[in-house]
């Protein structure tokens, strides 16, 4: 099963992922990271792991992993 992994320490709150997510699964209102930016939160119920967030992110926050169920 594919899973979206987020490295929130890299996040700079630009919200490109929130804008481009086709399923509205990403919100940038998570806890504040060490750089001082609110970070991304992924709703795993809605996420279809399409990888668009990976593509639009300037800060390499997202990774897609294959996980065992």
């Amino acid at each position: 099963m594919k899973k979206l992994i987020t490295n929130v320490e890299s996040c700079k709150s630009c919200k490109y992922c929130e804008d481009n997510c086709p399923k509205d699964a990403i919100k940038v209102n998570g806890k504040i990271n060490s750089k001082g930016y609110p970070t991304v939160v992924v709703d795993e119920e809605k996420c279809i792991v399409c990888g668009i967030c990976y593509n639009v992110c300037p800060d390499y926050v997202f990774e897609i992993h294959e996980c065992e169920v």
């Binding site: 990976y54 390499y60 990774e63 897609i64 294959e66």
Partner: peptide
């Protein structure tokens, strides 16, 4: 790992947000 940043981008970049 199926998709992750390229090896060349090994640390966080220093650009402004966005």
């Amino acid at each position: 790992v199926i998709k992750s940043k390229p090896e060349a981008c090994f640390v966080d970049n220093k650009y402004c947000p966005g």
